[in-house]
C-alpha cells in the first residue's frame, strides 16, 4: 500500500468505521432499552409488539437489511438514505434487537425483593424502574454489551458492500490499486483488532465505574496490576473506608 493510498483512503476509512460503530451503537442502545423494557411490560400488547420486533430483527441478516434499505427502500417509498445512514440504521436496528435481550435479562435478574421495597415506599412503576431497577441492572448489562459492541464493530465491514468508504472498502481499493493483497488485509485485520481492544478497555472502565456506583467491589483490573501491586485488590475497600471513592 502506497502512502498516498494510506492517507487518502485508509485513514479516512478508519474514521468512517469509528463513526459508524459509535453511531449505530448509540442507536442500538436506544433500541435495546426501548424494546427490552417493552418486553418486561405488564401490558400484553406492548410485550407482543416488542417480541415481534425482537424476533424479526434477530431473524433477518444485517447485510440483507442494509442492502434492502440502500436499494429496495428508495424504489418502494421514493425516498432514500445516504448510504452511510442505511448502514447505521441497519446495524443499529439489528444489534438493538440482540441488545434488548440483554436489557430484559438484566432487569429480570434484579432481586424481586428490590421491587417489593420500592412498592413498600409507594414508588410508581416508572420510578422503580428509573431509580432502582435500571441502576442495579446496568452494571450487569455492560459485559454482554461489550461483546455486542465488538460484534457490531466487525459488522460495520458490511457497509463496504453499499459503497460506504469504510476501512474495509479502503483496503479493497488499495488492494485493487496496488495489486498487493497481503499488506492491505493484514493492516485491515490489525486495525479492527486495535479498535476492538480500545473499545473493550473503555467498556471495562465503564463497568468498574458502574459497579462502584452500586457499592460493589469492582473486579481487579488485570494480572499486570495484580503482579505489580499485591495489595491492589484491597484498594477499593480502603479508599471506600477513607470516603475516597464513589
Amino acid at each position: 500500500m502506497t502512502s498516498a493510498l494510506f492517507t487518502s483512503w485508509f485513514l479516512p476509512g478508519v474514521w468512517i468505521t469509528i463513526q459508524i460503530t459509535l453511531l449505530s451503537a448509540l442507536l442500538a442502545l436506544v433500541v435495546a432499552f426501548v424494546v427490552g423494557l417493552a418486553r418486561t411490560s405488564e401490558v400484553w400488547i406492548v410485550r407482543f409488539v416488542a417480541g415481534c420486533y425482537f424476533e424479526v430483527f434477530r431473524g433477518t441478516s444485517a447485510l440483507v437489511l442494509m442492502l434492502w434499505l440502500a436499494f429496495a427502500f428508495p424504489l418502494m417509498f421514493g425516498w432514500q438514505f445516504v448510504p452511510m445512514a442505511s448502514g447505521i440504521v441497519a446495524l443499529g436496528l439489528t444489534y438493538g434487537a440482540y441488545g434488548s435481550e440483554i436489557v430484559r435479562g438484566a432487569l429480570q435478574a434484579v432481586p424481586p425483593a428490590q421491587r417489593e421495597a420500592g412498592i413498600a415506599l409507594s414508588f410508581t412503576k416508572m420510578q422503580r424502574l428509573r431509580k432502582i431497577e435500571i441502576p442495579q441492572a446496568w452494571p450487569e448489562m455492560i459485559p454482554p454489551f461489550n461483546n455486542l459492541l465488538i460484534e457490531l464493530l466487525k459488522g460495520t465491514a458490511l457497509v463496504s458492500t453499499i459503497a460506504v468508504a469504510d476501512m474495509t472498502f479502503a483496503a479493497n481499493i488499495s488492494r485493487l490499486a496496488s495489486n498487493e493483497s497481503a499488506p492491505a488485509y493484514t493492516l485491515l485485520l490489525l486495525s479492527y483488532f486495535v479498535i476492538a481492544f480500545v473499545l473493550t478497555r473503555g467498556m471495562r472502565l465503564l463497568e468498574r465505574r458502574a459497579k462502584a456506583g452500586v457499592g460493589q467491589k469492582p473486579e481487579s483490573s488485570g494480572w499486570l496490576r495484580r503482579r505489580l501491586k499485591p495489595g491492589a485488590a484491597n484498594d477499593f475497600a480502603r479508599s471506600q473506608g477513607a470516603g475516597g471513592l464513589g
Binding site: A113, Q114, E116, A117, A120, K131, I132, P135, Q136, G213, V214, G215, Q216
Partner: peptide, 9 residues
C-alpha cells in the same frame, strides 16, 4: 423486611 432490602445503588 427480614432481609432489609436496602437499595444497593
Amino acid at each position: 423486611f427480614q432481609q432489609f432490602n436496602l437499595f444497593p445503588n
